[in-house]
Computed example of a mutant assay.
Amino acid sequence: MLENKRYEFKLIKLVRDEKDLTSIKETKLNILLVPVWTGANNIFFKENVMLNKNDIYTLNPSLEELFRNQKLNSNFFCIFDILNTGDVLPHGSIKKMGNIADTHLADLVSAELKGNNTWRLTRNLTKKCGSCIYRYLCPPISTFEIQSEDFGGCCVDI
């Protein structure tokens, strides 16, 4: 019965360093590579994940993306993380907003929009990117940048 059905799937490989990349180069499978920051692989991130000027020049964001990058963070917007304890955090943040057991969803959404934790965390609000001419061209701030406290996921010297 299963052999008559077609299933689509994606293979995802978490990549921490060059060794993780070499281990999959010889395979012919279509694998989605997801970089994982460990705190000890900053050089790998600078060389393989962070943008440089040439990368930025090759980006071709739509007008919608440019306008969106000015006002909200599309990596985090409208996403809550709910921990196993029921605590609710805006995605990408470590700030607890309440508990799902005793806080209404509307109150959580309102608090996040007013508190501006991550949903509206844009590059113009950060020290490194705030005066950069590329700030709206670059992708929105990522979880990596928040965790590493290195806002500016690029290698462009301003």
Score class of each variant (00 low, 15 high):
155 C>E: 13
31 I>K: 14
41 N>E: 10
85 T>K: 04
128 K>L: 08
132 C>S: 04
84 N>S: 12
73 N>K: 05
9 F>T: 01
55 D>L: 01
96 K>Y: 01
93 S>L: 10
27 T>D: 15
32 L>Y: 13
98 G>E: 03
141 I>D: 10
46 K>F: 11
58 T>P: 00
146 I>A: 03
112 E>Y: 04
16 R>P: 00
155 C>S: 12
79 I>Y: 06
144 F>I: 08
139 P>F: 11
111 A>M: 13
3 E>Y: 13
99 N>C: 08
132 C>L: 03
12 I>M: 15
16 R>Q: 13
48 N>A: 05
67 F>V: 14
34 V>W: 03
142 S>A: 11
152 G>Y: 01
63 L>A: 11
125 L>H: 04
135 R>E: 05
19 K>T: 14
6 R>D: 14
158 I>H: 06
118 T>P: 08
64 E>Q: 14
112 E>A: 03
80 F>L: 00
149 E>H: 14
15 V>N: 07
82 I>M: 09
45 F>W: 08
111 A>G: 12
118 T>I: 10
117 N>S: 08
148 S>A: 11
100 I>S: 01
38 T>F: 02
88 V>A: 03
88 V>I: 11
41 N>P: 12
70 Q>A: 08
36 V>Y: 03
85 T>C: 03
156 V>W: 03
2 L>M: 13
139 P>V: 10
37 W>F: 15
24 I>E: 07
106 A>D: 10
124 N>F: 00
70 Q>S: 06
44 F>V: 02
156 V>H: 04
112 E>Q: 03
37 W>K: 10
70 Q>G: 01
52 N>A: 04
55 D>A: 05
126 T>G: 06
22 T>E: 15
150 D>E: 14
120 R>W: 11
6 R>F: 11
13 K>W: 13
134 Y>S: 02
56 I>A: 10
22 T>I: 12
62 S>H: 12
63 L>S: 12
25 K>M: 14
103 T>A: 04
119 W>D: 01
42 N>L: 05
72 L>F: 13
54 N>M: 02
105 L>S: 05
71 K>V: 09
150 D>R: 07
29 L>I: 14
127 K>D: 14
33 L>E: 13
109 V>T: 01
49 V>M: 01
147 Q>S: 09
34 V>R: 11
17 D>G: 07
48 N>E: 05
2 L>F: 14
27 T>Y: 15
157 D>S: 10
134 Y>N: 01
32 L>I: 10
121 L>I: 11
79 I>W: 07
22 T>P: 00
45 F>G: 02
81 D>I: 07
156 V>F: 07
74 S>T: 14
83 L>V: 05
131 S>Q: 12
13 K>C: 14
62 S>Q: 11
103 T>Y: 03
82 I>C: 09
149 E>G: 06
28 K>H: 14
20 D>S: 09
84 N>T: 05
36 V>A: 08
7 Y>P: 07
34 V>T: 09
4 N>C: 09
130 G>R: 08
95 K>G: 02
156 V>M: 04
113 L>T: 00
72 L>I: 13
96 K>G: 01
122 T>V: 13
96 K>F: 00
32 L>R: 12
98 G>Q: 01
146 I>P: 04
98 G>I: 10
87 D>A: 10
